[in-house]
Design a protein around this nucleic acid. Structure first.
Lengths: 408, 408
DNA sequence: CCTGTATGTACGGAGCACGAACATACCTTG
DNA sequence: CAAGGTATGTTCGTGCTCCGTACATACAGG
């Protein structure tokens, strides 16, 4: 029995976990994780590059990477030609396409997408399933996810490292339980993480869709190696995933990122949430379509950003002005994030990407105009380079960061 | 010469630094830092407590803490009575009052406050200096800071571990240069960090005032051991310091926290910064006084939160309503932070604290009303327990975290 | 006084990174 | 083509730190 009198405080999700001390046995684990991290951050690197980067001897790198090559995670690439000074050509190391894959799931209202992803970020195979979005039979949802995974797990492949699930709604990341999905209210309360873990006997990690997208950018996209950036989803809804200090930010229980309900117009339009002037009320498809109806734009009730941009480019009456207002409304919320956190880089996902360079350039200009000059840190707006794969790759990144004990 | 062809990317402030691998020599440094961290997070702990907490043997803790006791940083407290089960009484370890102190500086427009702080967070001595706030002679400012420090550095004390400087304005934390101080424009561009480092020959760390306050809460106040919280300064201005994942957040160059210019009323009152509807325009003394003048409250032009709260408590006509509107305006900005980051705890500093429990309770209620229920994470509002010392203690925490290589 | 319990310390053993030296492979130059 | 230079990757003995076990110390309770 432990002494109760001087016993440390009981566990509390808001308390910082005490990092255990490093023992000789764990040094190699920690170092292995850091080497893998460097590869993800920078790309293929030779042993000598890794030694310089991590400030250890080449001999040490050898002993760290050799087991990873032996167990099939890493593989040596073709020799790189040596420089003009001569020297033995280096053999860059990178994740083997035949290494243990990762299962990635995107759970949307009404359907499930899944993929098997290699450690290097290649999508090896995909599968999808439909389910009735308005169902209250949560068993059918779990079945849909499980069946999709079964399609991926063929006997000729090694078992997956784990399963990452991105949910288009609010999730408690500590318990892997769905809290709320707007267009599928029946999913509320479903402990999807535990149920899939029981069926697959694999570690399962569940997180919010915008945060998973940020993980995609962080591991496989423009966020690689960056300390701080924001991934913004904008389209029919708004959401943000924040990478701060190299880790994706999660509030207690995985809260945070509900940027759609931040207030940008205190006495503005009423929002579904009961407040007034949420960012959602002026920067989503709903607002865009309401305005388009008033302006008598074609197909106003199903308008999206791409068609609006094309109407504006053609000079359709009212379209250009609406486009500009939409961009400025987006800029307001982005500015607020920049003022508070100064991530510096905003990676855009969702339908907003259909706005093209006209939208990106204008948006960047508006955000810069609204953020007073801070030396050497002009905010940048970019479209995600991962396109439609960002969520599935992010779900793989979720598994990677947790399973390999890398930066979370 | 290094090979250029496979050379890793050049250094970039927005890139994450690659943590060097751990060698047998550095294991002890890392572990020592983690033991010290545990003491700061929890308070005095015996060797056995530390062993349980850090998951190493008591023997290891002994070898880690013995040098710290020998060099005077830690000291054994009085034996704690053993529990009913018996056993040898434990000797709690804590920072010795005679350990190497830390110099803390608060640079305000027109005057300088400084203190010598023990590692345990006790203010050992203080000193102040005035300087003309409207000066363009930056030498006089550096002299004022330096003279104040000289007052503290008496020959009978060991040399300080370092100097932490909190600046009431925008600062580039990478270079230690002042970017802008609202009421002392002459300070812009002053490389205060480098200049004080040259004079004192000590390591000097410079940061923004709200962020330093957050560090005070994080090391010595209610933020101890917490993973995530926000420290809000509210009074004549607004500013926020964020602790996320155990570290205080800094954007590139130390940007971020300029919450006063986040937009909460897109078509609202014009702000000094050129935009409309910044939070500043509805939640600072300026707004409060403008409203008080319109309501004909007594001493309206110099009104602060304390007198307003007392007028409201006495039922003075209009005061109660103004008080409520002020609280709700504060709640808007806090809600936005909660929606984005979900820090869960907001520690208030500045004149707003004079509003007392009436203000705190109402503010908490408003923020909770505005944030849709997230399971098990109701946001909390608290006043700083450090009162007027929070900035100086935070400046000490700034030095601690950097000098001891603890979590930044 | 003896047993039980808990704290703090001493000592041989094991794991891992380090440094130096070596094998390998390519370049340039005469 | 041979020699010298340069860079990569590997081998092997050394040293640092933590681990497990055992032991000394100190208090409670019967």
């Amino acid at each position: 029995m432990r002494s109760e009198s001087t016993r440390p405080a009981p566990p509390d999700p808001t308390r910082r976990p005490y990092s255990p001390l490093i023992s000789p046995n764990t040094v190699s684990q920690v170092n292995r994780a850091r080497v893998i991290q460097a590869l993800y951050d920078i790309g293929p690197l030779s042993r000598a590059d890794l030694a310089r980067l991590t400030e250890v001897s080449r001999a040490t790198i050898g002993t760290i990477v050799q087991p990873l090559i032996d167990n099939g995670m890493l593989a040596e690439g073709d020799p790189q030609p040596s420089s003009a000074a001569g020297g033995k050509p280096s053999r860059p190391l990178w994740f083997s396409p035949t290494s243990q894959p990762i299962a990635a799931v995107h759970l949307l209202p009404g359907h499930v997408e899944a993929a098997l992803v290699s450690a290097g970020g290649t999508i090896l195979s995909t599968a999808t399933r439909e389910y009735p979005a308005d169902t209250r039979d949560t068993g059918s949802v779990v079945d849909a996810v499980n069946d999709t995974l079964e399609d991926l797990f063929t006997p000729d492949r090694p078992t997956a490292l784990g399963v990452g699930i991105a949910v288009g709604g609010i999730v408690n990341t500590d318990t892997g339980t769905i809290v709320q999905v707007n267009l599928a209210p029946g999913l509320a309360g479903l402990p999807i993480g535990r149920l899939i873990a029981e069926r697959t006997r694999l570690p399962v990690y569940v997180d919010l869709h915008p945060r998973v997208q940020a993980l995609g950018d962080r591991w496989f996209g423009q966020g690689r190696g960056l300390s701080t950036f924001a991934s913004l989803y904008a389209g029919e809804a708004l959401g943000v995933g924040l990478v701060l200090g190299g880790s994706v930010h999660r509030g207690p229980g995985g809260a945070g990122g509900e940027i759609g309900h931040s207030i940008v117009q205190a006495d503005g339009l009423p929002c579904q949430c009961g407040q007034r002037g949420c960012w959602e009320t002026i920067a989503t498809h709903r607002w865009l379509r309401d305005q388009a109806v008033q302006l008598n734009l074609p197909s106003a009730r199903t308008l999206t950003v791409g068609p609006l941009a094309r109407l504006a480019a053609k000079g359709h009456p009212g379209a250009g002005e609406l486009f500009d207002r939409y961009v400025d409304n987006l800029a307001i919320g982005i500015t607020n994030i920049q003022q508070l956190l100064a991530p510096g880089l905003f990676i855009l996902h969702g339908d907003v990407v259909a706005g093209g360079e006209a939208l990106r350039g204008k948006l960047e200009q508006q955000v810069r105009r609204r953020t007073p000059a801070h030396p050497g840190s002009q905010p940048q707006i970019a479209f995600s380079a991962l396109h439609d794969d960002s969520t599935l790759l992010g779900a793989a990144g979720l598994v990677l960061s947790r399973s390999l004990q890398l930066t979370p």
